[in-house]
Write a protein that binds this DNA or RNA. Structure first.
Lengths: 339, 339
DNA sequence: ATAGTTTGTCGAAGCGCTTCGACTCCGTCG
DNA sequence: CGACGGAGTCGAAGCGCTTCGACAAACTAT
């Protein structure tokens, strides 16, 4: 293993000079710099991460805590994780992958050991037990998600309330009056991750303003469960003509069941999904949808963190504006004669 | 930040004694151990990762290189990644998340800097350019996947050839004679990741022995593409009664299209999927499937790596035996009278 | 020309930990 | 009873890097 000292000797300079060439923290003459850089090349030198971390108290690692559960939005999680890793690299950071399993202990461990310089937390619950630790730690962190109390925290998330409102507006504009929300699995609501409730709140508030009637049904993924849910919805309110689906794994079943019942999309009923674009475009009907900006959230989180680490950052809550893309699953409400 | 020295002082012992309490590498009297452990508790001591890495030349980090592409099997990738992280923790290791983006450079960087003690590579191509580096490095590594030349490498993967064979056997046993394989997207074959070809090879070989005729069609996910693919298959060979699907995002479209064409599953056609159980059970028909043992692969990879790091490991190729679960999507070939 | 500033380089002091050899104290064996 | 070995502890020497202060040389401003 090649060390700094060997590079220094090979280039005929002192170790500190090599270090300064590497870090650029002091000016170095062009000649010296070139000699050092050549030596680094020739010897195939790579700075030792541990030594660097010890001497500088900076590991150049960002910890990313992903949920252990894989009961929802897996592709979104993955996309965020990859965006985080990619963005981090462009800023010279690596990413440490932590699972939610360890819970608050992971936060303590990472903060205490200096393993990472900063943390990104996904799947944040409304009253997450990791938050007190983050607040009292001097380590920068960013949450992807929105807890109940955001004081002293930085958060990035899609504006789910606005997402819900947007869906209501689109359906209202098309003349729908009775709509149903196919929500996440009950477990998601019980866990109080917040985003599902926020969507619903936003949708309900706007619906009231616009005179829409809303039926909300949590729903696990899968065909059978969806079948039961759907028939209950039509039993209870046969006049339902609009659906908002916030559960990837309910999308395909819903469309299949509607077709099976002879309800055409978008002629008889309209469907909006809150899901990644890929799901929206690969469904049997190209779905009008609000995309979940996974990449943007991951990128944003890292960049905020890097800014903080450079002493530039501030605590703030960033809610990304939702965008509704109209595709082929929504249309004007059917005229009564056609019903 | 609390240091070893402070713990030592607090406990009234030397620094080295504390170190030995922590590592267990030398015997310590029960009394001393307890005093040290109490001090650690009281002071809230966490060993500094950098210092540890520097002094011991061990980072206790395993690097995991995941594919950047998210065009296939995302949930499987995620499940593997989580299994890796979870298993690594039980052995005292953390996981560094690398994306395929950097390619071979990432291998050099990580190996050279001592950032990680070992590597796990996913999405290995048949003739992967990272392999020479791994062979010449003295760092242990495990591949999840199977390259063309495995000399000097350790690999873990599902036995996809056996998977293909298993599917053929099941369909043959039920009396099917003409079967079609809905493969991965063409890009997957062009990339030569191997698993798709291996499945096909295994299936073809066994099919020949059993007298099955096989039609293979690569297919991107999505409804529209699937519709075209399916109609071509039935045009070309109307007698097709069995399907093997190796593409998660083709499963739902295939089932929907079959139903739409009035072909009942499993009465008219049988469908086997190679996919995670969750996909198989959430489809409109509970699918007979061969599961992809994502967790097991991740766990296995880590455990092999840990064994190597402890000087116990060997280079070997582990192909996990596929298991076919019969559900409701396969049945006896329809009698000619019913056709 | 002289003082003051900037530029480029070096030496040395750690960063917090592991680990090796040395030492002491006991119990044990011949 | 002295030599021996194991158990338990300590001191000190690094691991490879960053960074601070010092210093010489080369400018700039008066």
């Amino acid at each position: 293993m090649v060390t700094l000292a060997e590079v220094a000797q090979h280039a005929g300079v002192s170790a500190s000079t090599v270090s300064y060439v590497l870090s650029g923290k002091r000016s170095i003459s062009a000649g010296t710099r070139q000699r050092v850089e050549r030596s680094i090349q020739e010897l195939g030198y790579h700075p030792n991460a541990g030594a660097r971390a010890l001497a500088s108290s900076r590991s150049n690692i960002i910890a990313l805590m992903v949920p252990l559960r894989t009961d929802m939005y897996v592709p979104v999680m993955m996309e965020i994780a990859i965006a985080v890793a990619t963005t981090a690299r462009t800023h010279g950071y690596d990413v440490l992958l932590l699972t939610g399993e360890e819970g608050p202990d992971a936060v303590r461990r990472v903060t205490g050991s200096g393993l990472a310089d900063a943390m990104i937390l996904m799947d944040v619950e409304l009253d997450d037990e990791r938050l007190p630790l983050l607040r009292q730690s001097d380590q920068p962190s960013v949450l992807i998600g929105l807890p109940a109390d955001t004081t002293g925290l930085t958060c990035v998330d899609l504006d789910f309330a606005a997402t819900g409102a947007l869906c209501a507006e689109h359906l209202a504009m098309l003349g729908h009056r009775d709509i149903a929300v196919i929500g996440e699995a009950p477990a998601v609501y019980e866990r109080h991750t917040g985003f599902a409730e926020r969507t619903l709140d936003g949708l309900r508030a706007r619906s009231q303003e616009l005179g829409l009637r809303v039926l909300h049904r949590p729903c696990e993924g899968g065909y059978d469960v969806m079948a039961v849910t759907l028939s209950r919805i039509f039993d209870e309110r046969p006049s339902t003509t609009g659906f908002v689906v916030q559960n990837e794994s309910a999308v395909a079943p819903l469309l299949a069941l509607l077709r099976q019942q002879g309800r055409a999309v978008p002629e008889d009923v309209s469907v909006i999904a809150v899901c990644p674009d890929q799901v929206a475009t690969q469904a049997s009907v190209r779905l009008t949808s609000v995309a979940i900006p996974a990449q943007e959230m991951g990128r944003h989180a890292v960049e905020h963190l890097v800014a903080k680490l450079d002493g530039r950052g501030t605590d703030e809550v960033v809610l990304l504006a939702p965008e509704l893309t109209v595709r082929a699953s929504t249309g004007p409400v059917p005229s009564p004669s056609a019903g």
